[in-house]
């Protein structure tokens, strides 16, 4: 029973940490994506950099943040290392390029499609932008869902700057890694399936909710 409570606790923490991280990341990623489309400046270079950063190894990011947050590091005085907040910060940085890149693509496609149409029906600048924003929302929501699954499924950051501390910074992926290290492969697989099911359920829920709002 105690073990069950612990698992539920870990699951809830995972959802909370990755959810907040994704929300934070979308706060700056989505406006940036719109900015890149509307300004359309230096796009090839920015695109290349962002698309490369999508695949940044999570342990590398974890290591960099560890060096930054460690007590002898630049931001050591904040005392963030081995706290859930540290994982949130790390994951929000991790998913930023992903959310920008995916929403940029969908917004750009919509912009191409609707720009001339909006011009031809005599829409002014603000109206044009409102049309593009409202039409590109499903793509942006999809970008956020992808970001969320990347955040909840990543291991390196949670391990390095979370520390996998029981009841405090242990999340689903670090719990799975721990079970594997213990040789409890069966438990690890069960946890993995739970992780996938939860991510799928949350994706479906977000899609349904956003459909209601957009339509």
């Amino acid at each position: 029973m105690k073990a069950m409570a612990e698992i539920i606790d870990t699951i809830l923490r995972s959802i909370m940490v990755s959810g907040v991280a994704t929300l934070m990341a979308s706060l700056w990623s989505i406006p940036l994506a719109y900015l890149f489309v509307f300004r359309n400046r230096g796009s090839v270079f920015i695109e290349a950099v962002i698309e490369t950063l999508v695949g940044i190894p999570t342990v590398l990011l974890g290591l960099l943040l560890y060096i930054l947050f460690s007590s002898s590091g630049l931001l050591g005085f904040l005392g963030l290392l081995y706290t859930p907040q540290a994982i949130i910060i790390g994951e929000s940085i991790l998913v930023t390029p992903l959310i920008i890149s995916i929403s940029y693509r969908s917004i750009r496609g919509i912009a191409h499609l609707y720009y001339e149409f909006a011009l031809s029906i005599g829409a002014n600048r603000v109206q044009r932008m409102r049309l593009i924003v409202s039409q590109s929302l499903p793509g942006v929501v999809a970008a956020c869902i992808t970001g969320f699954s990347r955040a909840i499924g990543e291991l390196g950051i949670a391990m390095m700057i979370g520390g996998n501390i029981k009841g405090y910074t242990r999340v689903m992926t670090t719990a799975i890694a721990l079970e594997v290290a213990k040789g409890n492969f069966e438990e690890a697989i069960i946890l993995g399936i739970v992780l996938l099911l939860i991510t799928i359920a949350i994706s479906i829920a977000i899609k349904l909710i956003s459909r209601v709002y957009v339509a």
Binding site: L81, M159, G163, N164, I165, K166, G167, L178, A181
Partner: peptide, 18 residues
Amino acid sequence: YKECGCGMDQALIIANEL
């Protein structure tokens, strides 16, 4: 009492930090 669920090197690094 902090259970880190980690390897020895990581546990030492956490002990060093905390």
